[in-house]
């Protein structure tokens, strides 16, 4: 192990979230703990063991994402209402099958149908979502049967494409692997392009999503 991290190209991974409804809009919530990902700001890792910055290689802290969607599908076991590809940056610990990152923000979200397990009400009761200035009321699970309206509001709140995949109960409504992988690859290319000062990269990513998914998000 080297003590000097490598500089790396853009990194993106796959993960799931629960979805909580608040007065300010829908929030992505970690399925592991009642911690929400803030809209339009980077999610930042912290560590209860004091890693600064988090994550560190020997610890288990950080923002988790898997390297491949099929692996996430197998691992998530029906957990989460939202599946997404997220950009990862800052300090990143690469694992054999995924990443732990210091900063993250979603690039693309797939909203799965209601009826799947939502945010854990037991966890929320035990430890309310932290108030970071949104004046959050007690969060509740987004339970609307039709995904169109929650998808629209999720897109508006986080400013990223939100797609309702046309999956089936048999596959957990997960998005198609090849389609999702192609979108993620385009997202990473877009990040690289924007890093190089290409201000049209975001628009190209939006176009690519539309081309690949077959509809305007």
């Amino acid at each position: 192990m080297t003590s000097v991290p490598d500089l790396a190209e853009p990194v993106a991974g796959w993960r799931v979230w629960d979805l909580a409804e608040t007065r300010e809009g829908p929030l992505l919530v970690s399925p592991l703990r009642p911690v929400f990902w803030p809209p339009r700001r980077p999610m930042t890792a912290t560590c209860s063991r004091g890693c600064a910055p988090s994550p560190s290689l020997p610890c288990r802290c950080g923002l988790y994402a898997m390297d491949e969607l099929p692996r996430l599908h197998r691992e998530s076991r029906g957990q989460g209402r939202v599946v997404g590809c997220t950009a990862l940056w800052g300090r990143v610990v690469e694992h054999a099958h995924g990443f732990r990152a210091q900063f993250a923000y979603p690039l693309l979200l797939f909203l799965l149908p209601a009826g799947r397990p939502g945010v854990s009400q037991r966890l929320l009761r035990r430890r309310p979502l932290p108030d970071v200035g949104y004046g959050l009321p007690a969060a509740t699970e987004v339970s609307s049967a039709s995904p169109a309206e929650p998808a629209r509001r999720l897109k508006q709140h986080y400013g990223v494409p939100v797609v309702v995949p046309s999956g089936s109960p048999a596959d957990g409504y997960f998005p198609d692997d090849r389609l999702a992988g192609a979108v993620a690859a385009e997202a990473v290319r877009g990040l690289a392009g924007r890093r190089e000062g290409d201000h049209t990269a975001h628009a190209r990513f939006a176009d690519a999503v539309e081309d690949l998914v077959g509809r305007r998000w």
């Binding site: 991290p5 500089l7 898997m66 300090r91 610990v93």
Partner: peptide, 25 residues
């Protein structure tokens, strides 16, 4: 989420925001 064993540390440049440009929010 089982991401298996750690392999290496990276420092990924935070040069660009993943957020849409031009959004006042």
């Amino acid at each position: 989420m089982n991401i298996d064993r750690p392999v290496r540390e990276l420092l990924v440049e935070p040069v660009v925001s993943p957020l849409p440009d031009g959004d006042p929010a």
